[in-house]
Design a protein around this nucleic acid. Sequence first.
DNA 1: TACGACCGTGGAAGCGCTTCCACTCACGCA
DNA 2: TGCGTGAGTGGAAGCGCTTCCACGGTCGTA
Lengths: 340, 340
Amino acid sequence: MVTIADVAAHAGVGAGTVSRVLNDSPQVSESTRARVLAAIEVLDYRPNPLARGLSRGRCQTLGVVVPFFTHASAVERLRGVVAALDKSLYDLVLFNVESPVHRDEHFTTLTRRDRADGLLIMSLPPPPASLHRLATSGVPIVLLDSRGAGVPAVVTDDVEGGRLATRHLLDLGHERIAFLGDEPGNPLGFTSSSAREAGYRETMESAGLAVRPGDVRHGPHVRAVARDLTRAMLAAPDRPTAIFAASDTQALGVLEAARAAGLTVPRDLSVVGFDDVEVSSYAGLTTVRQPLFESGRRAAELLLESLAAEEPLGEAEYQLDLELVVRSTTAAPATTPAAG
Amino acid sequence: MVTIADVAAHAGVGAGTVSRVLNDSPQVSESTRARVLAAIEVLDYRPNPLARGLSRGRCQTLGVVVPFFTHASAVERLRGVVAALDKSLYDLVLFNVESPVHRDEHFTTLTRRDRADGLLIMSLPPPPASLHRLATSGVPIVLLDSRGAGVPAVVTDDVEGGRLATRHLLDLGHERIAFLGDEPGNPLGFTSSSAREAGYRETMESAGLAVRPGDVRHGPHVRAVARDLTRAMLAAPDRPTAIFAASDTQALGVLEAARAAGLTVPRDLSVVGFDDVEVSSYAGLTTVRQPLFESGRRAAELLLESLAAEEPLGEAEYQLDLELVVRSTTAAPATTPAAG
DNA sequence: TACGACCGTGGAAGCGCTTCCACTCACGCA
DNA sequence: TGCGTGAGTGGAAGCGCTTCCACGGTCGTA
C-alpha cells in the first residue's frame, strides 16, 4: 500500500507538502505541486480515508436513517438523497430502522463526528430524549418527513393534503367518505397518516358531514392489510361511496378489495391515495402527489450546505408543495348517497 | 470526547488493557474486566471507529455497488442485503452507479481495505480490466445477478427463466409470441434481459416456431418505453397473441399499452413478466418469480462468511430457483392463431 | 528452596494522515 | 549593507486505537 511518505520520497519533498497538495493548500509553489501530482500519478496513490478522518476529526460520510422496509415512499426519497450525494465527496451509509430500540440505538450512536459528518433522518420523529442529543450533538441533522424542536425539517403539509383529497371527493358529490390509514400509535411514531386523517376529519366536519366510526380504519402500512380492512368496510350493506387512503400502497389495497367485491372503480367506489409513487400512474390512481424524490434531494442538499458552511442549521421548516393528481379512480357517486 | 485513555485512567489500568477488554481478549482477569466495563459504562465511552479502523487495517464497512435508479428489482435485493447486515457489525455504504465511468471509478477506488472490508456488486458485470483488480485486490467480492471469472456470484438461471415463460405460453396454445426487453448493448452491460431472450428464442425454435423480427423489441428499462414499444407492436394488423416481457416493470408497460389499445388481457393478449416484484400480485401478472430479497440476503451472507473466515471466496456460483407464477394475464389465445 | 513457566498487565510503537511550528531563503526597503 | 518580511517547506506531534514486547508476580515442580 502506497502511503503519503512514499509519495513524499518519490517527489523529493516532505510529507507535509504532499498533504498540502492533497488539500489544495495555496501554500505550495506551482513547481512543487506539479512534482507531487506527478508522483501521485506514478505511484497510483490514494489517501487512506481512515487516517484522514482520524486526523481531521471527521469521516466524509453521511448517515441516512430510514425505515427501509415499511414505506414504498422511503425508497423514492432515498433515490433523491443518493442523487444529491452523487456529486458530493460524501459516502452514504444506510442505517435501517425496524423497531424503536433500533432507532434509539442509532440516534445515540450516530451523534458523533467519527460515525457520520451529518445525519438525515427519514420519517422518524425522534423521541424527546433523543431530540436533545441530536440537536446539540454538533453533528448536523436534517429531518425528512418528520419534525422535532430545534432541528431543521423538510416536510409536506399532510393536513392540507388530507383536505385536498377530501375536498376533491366532496366536490364530486360524495358524502359517505371513508378513511383508511396507519395506526395512530404505530411503534415508530410515523405521523403522516394521522395528519392526513386530521385534514380529512376537519374537511368533513366543515362540510357538515359526520364521520361514522366504522368509516375510519387503521392498520399496518401493508397493501394486504389495507385490502382486508377495506373488505370489511365494503361488506356492510350501507357502505361508503368513496375511500381516502393515507398512502398509495394502501390505496392499491383498497382497489384490490373493490375489485374482489365486484365493484367497478370509480363507478361504484371512488378511491384517492397519497404520495404518487411510480406505480400509481399505472393504476390510474387519483392521488395527492408529494415530491418524494425532490424531498430527499432537498434534505440532502441542506445537509451538504450546512457541512460546507460549517455551521449548524437552526430549526427551520422547508415545506414542499402538494398537488392533487386526478386520474381515473374518482368520479361522482353513481347512486344518490344515503341521506344522513 | 471520551477516549480510551480516559477509561484507562478511570479504571486504574493501562490503555492496552481497556483495548483487550473491548476486543474480548481472554488475556484479562475477571476483576479487571469488570472494572474496565464499569468505567466504560460510567463515562459512556464508545470507541472511535476511525481510529480502530486505522489501527486494524479495516473499516467495518461493506460497500454495495448498485444501479439504484434503473431496476425496481435492485431495491428488493437491497432490502435483502440490509436484512442480512442488520445483525452484523458492518455498516452498509451505498455506491450508486449510473454510467460506466461511474462504475469503473468505484471498482478501482473501492478495492482497498480502507474503503470497504467487502464489496457486493449488483447486476453489474465488471469489465475485464476491473475484474482482475477485483479478484486479486484482497477485498472479498460477491457479484449478485452477474458473473465474472474468479469471483463468486449469486445468480439465477435467466435462460431457463426465459424458457419457462415461453413454454407456458406455448402450452396455452400461443404461436405468435413476442419478446420485449432491454437493449442488448445497454451501457452498463446488464445481461439478464438478453439471457431471458435467449431462453425465449431457444424455446421458440425447438417448438418449430419462427420469431419474426418485428416480434422482438428492445428499449431502456422503463415502463413508459415498454408501453410505447408495445403500442407499435399492437398497431400492426397481424399482431402477436402473447408478449413475454423481460421484467415486471416492462410487463406493466405492456399491460398499459394493451389497455390503451382496447385489448382485454388475457382474452386478446397474454402477458408474462419476470421478477415478481411487489406490485405484480396487485396487477395479477403472470410472471417468473425470482427470489430477489433472498438473493440479496444470500449474497450478503456469503460476504459475511468470507469475512468471518478471513479467507477469500473462490470462484463459485450460487444459483437460486425460479418459479412460474401463473396469475390472470395469461390464457389460451382467443382466436385461432394465424398459421405460420 | 530455587528455578522456570506462564498469566496478567503497562506502555511504547505504529497505523497514515493533518497541522502546527520552526526554519530557510529571496526579496524589498531603509 | 543590513534587517524585516513572507512565501515555501520539512518535520514533529498528535488524532485514538491495536498490538507487540517486556516485566512482575504467582504457581508448580524438582
